[in-house]
Structure formats: structure tokens, C-alpha cells
Amino acid sequence: MKDYPSQWVAGGFTCRRIPARASDYIDGRLPLGAQVRVGLHLASCLHCRNYLTQLALVRDTLEQFPPIAIRPFDRLRLRRQFARVHPQHPFHCDHV
């Protein structure tokens, strides 16, 4: 898609002003007016669309980031402490 400076004017933002609003935009947190203005800019700006796509990809990848497993010895020690402080009740109750 080709960029048209006149359309940025219509949108009200230059590319440089987009990143500051990018996380709010991809998380759907911008006020409606700002969301429309960013949307208008994105409609004519491939580079900013790339930027937002990358940012969203980073966010979505972090959500699935590989976990750090607890060390086996630490887990064992915690289980022992848990069993000592919270001895198992014969009848479980799901309500508090």
C-alpha cells in the first residue's frame, strides 16, 4: 500500500506519534476519538501497520513464554512445609 501524506493530515497523526499510542491501541484501550485517528493513519501507512503487528506479536509471544520450572529440591521442600502447616482433611470442602 502506498503512503499518502495528505491522509496523515486527515488522520491527525504522523508516524512518529503512533508508537506512543501503539500499546493502548492494540490492547483496545484508546478513547474512541484517538482510536479513530490512529485507525485512519494505519489505513494509509504500511510501516506503522508493520510496527503495530510486531508489537502485538511480541505481546502475544510473551503470553506463551516458556515457564521457568521450580527446582525439584525446592518443590520437595515446599511440599513438606505445606503438608506440615496444612495437614490434609479427610473431607474436602469446596466452599469458604
Partner: peptide, 29 residues
């Protein structure tokens, strides 16, 4: 949370493992 807390207070070790597995990575980071 309420259900998990009830299980923890009942001494459910599986519930404690769940809690550890859920938050351990973020706590370390």
C-alpha cells in the same frame, strides 16, 4: 481464588502445586 483457597486450607497438595506452577516463573523473573 475462593475454590483454590478452600482446597489449600484443606491440605490439598495438588492445589498447592497448581499455585506454584501458575506463578513461579513470573515470581522468579
Amino acid at each position: 481464588d475462593r475454590s483454590l483457597i478452600a482446597r489449600l486450607r484443606n491440605g490439598d497438595e495438588g492445589a498447592f502445586d497448581e499455585l506454584v506452577n501458575k506463578h513461579h516463573s513470573a515470581l522468579i523473573r
